[in-house]
Design a protein around this nucleic acid. Structure first.
Lengths: 180, 180
DNA sequence: ACCGTAGCGGACTGACGGTCCGTTTCGCCA
DNA sequence: TGGCGAAACGGACCGTCAGTCCGCTACGGT
């Protein structure tokens, strides 16, 4: 890959991160604005990422990867506590990455689901539910993940973190305690 | 209110219902298309409903009202079973009104939440949770409702109804069984 | 240093949500 | 019934946005 291409893609990612983080509403961040902020032509932007969804996904993947790199490698908690930890981390991630997470969820065409990181997250929660003997694990995993959707996080923004996190914990424990 | 105004608003609602029901993706239903299908000018459409969100909300309210009119008046079930029934009805409603529900959730500005029918639904589920002595009721009600989001319904469209409804039931029972 | 080509940039396109205002039609009153 | 003020109409128009296209630039292998 040519050096200028790499450099430009990095500029675009950096500019987009800044703009999405700063925006109240991610819909107000236009592709033109990102290109301008990156000091790059629009063509470059679209050649590098395909379309808006592609760019948002690339950003999301970047941030979530950074997040996962700091994952305290699975200490043998029981499945229920491990699920609480995973979902709490995800909640906090969406608080921290509000703009980006909202942008991804609104990008259309089932974007919250058609997404490698959703699949992995869902598979992991499902595995924990199965380990705990809870059924039907597949649906319940979707339901648990729905509780940490970006726009719910957004909607509950004014509430103290402690309250929502206690709620999340109660939810997960309840689901893991129910055996069919 | 002038007769032509009423007549036009009815045409618009009818046309919009048809188009949203028929569309694979509600984003592909444009305001121009609705106006044309209703045999009405665009000005009339916007004067009657304010903006796209206003029209979608009006349609949603219309359908949900029809739904609530057929509600079997609260037979004294225990809170848990009542919640199962409410959420199952909502799930089915979203299966039946796929296009409309997706349109509402995607209409932006926290539209799934800033909505009288969401508030009422949330208040009702909260009341049931409180009656069952489950805490924190407010958050858990949001979480339960998140399990019947239109795009999750859409994502699980290929799965048999029986499976998802069993899952929903398991979820609700688990949450109502947990006394915090 | 040269040259083929990958990559650049920004003018351009098509579509959309929403506005504006000259024209039409309603319905009240004589 | 005819006339009139106001309410409502309709579609041309506007600003904006995602995405495309193509003449130009500059990278890097030889």
């Amino acid at each position: 890959m040519r050096a200028d291409k790499t450099r430009n893609q990095d500029s675009v990612l950096a500019a987009a991160e800044r703009l999405f983080d700063a925006a109240d509403d991610p819909d107000t961040v236009s592709m033109d604005a990102i290109a301008a902020a990156a000091g790059v032509g629009k063509g470059t932007l679209f050649r590098g990422f395909g379309d808006r969804l592609g760019l948002v996904r690339a950003l999301y993947v970047k941030r979530i990867t950074e997040e996962l790199d700091t994952l305290p490698t699975g200490r043998g908690l029981d499945p229920s506590d491990e699920a609480v930890e995973l979902l709490t981390r995800m909640w906090r991630f969406k608080v921290r990455n509000r703009g980006l997470a909202l942008a991804l969820e609104r990008a259309g065409r089932g974007s919250p689901y058609r997404n490698e990181s959703y699949e992995r997250f869902h598979a992991e929660i499902t595995r924990l539910l199965v380990a705990a003997g809870v059924d039907p694990a597949d649906f319940l995993a979707h339901a648990l993940i729905a509780a940490v959707r970006a726009d719910l996080v957004e909607h509950l923004r004014d509430q103290p973190d402690a309250d929502t996190e206690a709620g999340l914990k109660a939810l997960v424990h309840a689901v893991f305690a129910g055996r069919g």
